[in-house]
């Protein structure tokens, strides 16, 4: 009685991946369950908290709101793809400034922050705050997250 699965193929953090999934499965569940990339988190399941932020074909998206079939053939970056051998400048700035507390919103914050830096959308503190307004944090009051983002933009630790 269950419906046909599809073979979903994606490039994830530079690697070709595939999984047999239901077309209406959430991309979030595919990332976590099928690709075993558990850095991407579920905080609300309704596109409010941003803990499931990933970069999909160059766009910042909430993976909880993307049906798997709409990611067919896409290129995706998750938090696991942000660091090379070393932490990325933004990750280093988060560490230095104390941008992570409990760490649960952190992957989404870093993905969103990376997107903002790459699209040059962090001209000043107001723009940084606006850009991060889709990512909720309950620990920090955002000060240290914003500081980390501004520092990374300026190439400071």
């Amino acid at each position: 009685m269950t419906t046909q699965k599809i073979l979903l193929k994606l490039t994830v953090n530079g690697e070709a991946r595939q999984a047999l999934v239901h077309p209406m499965s959430r991309l979030l569940d595919v990332i976590r369950e099928d690709f075993c990339l558990t850095g991407t988190k579920e905080g609300c399941g309704e596109g409010e908290c941003g803990a499931c932020s990933v970069i999909l074909d160059g766009s910042l998206v909430n993976a909880c709101l993307v049906p798997a079939i709409q990611a067919q053939g896409s290129t995706m970056r998750t938090v696991e793809g942000l660091a090379g051998v070393d932490l990325s400048p933004l990750q280093q700035a988060f560490l230095h400034h104390g941008g992570a507390q409990c760490g649960f919103c952190t992957p989404g914050m870093l993905v969103a922050g990376t997107y903002l830096l790459e699209t040059d959308a962090v001209q000043d503190e107001d723009r940084a705050r606006e850009g991060l307004s889709g990512n909720l944090c309950r620990c920090t009051g955002y000060v240290k997250i914003v500081d980390a983002l501004l520092a990374a933009r300026e190439g400071r630790p």
């Binding site: 938090v79 942000l82 760490g103």
Partner: peptide, 17 residues
């Protein structure tokens, strides 16, 4: 620096789920 900071920044920190 936060001791478990690096794990939390790379997605390596494992939460219950």
């Amino acid at each position: 620096l936060r001791r478990e900071g690096r794990a939390k920044l790379t997605g390596a920190a494992l939460f219950t789920d």
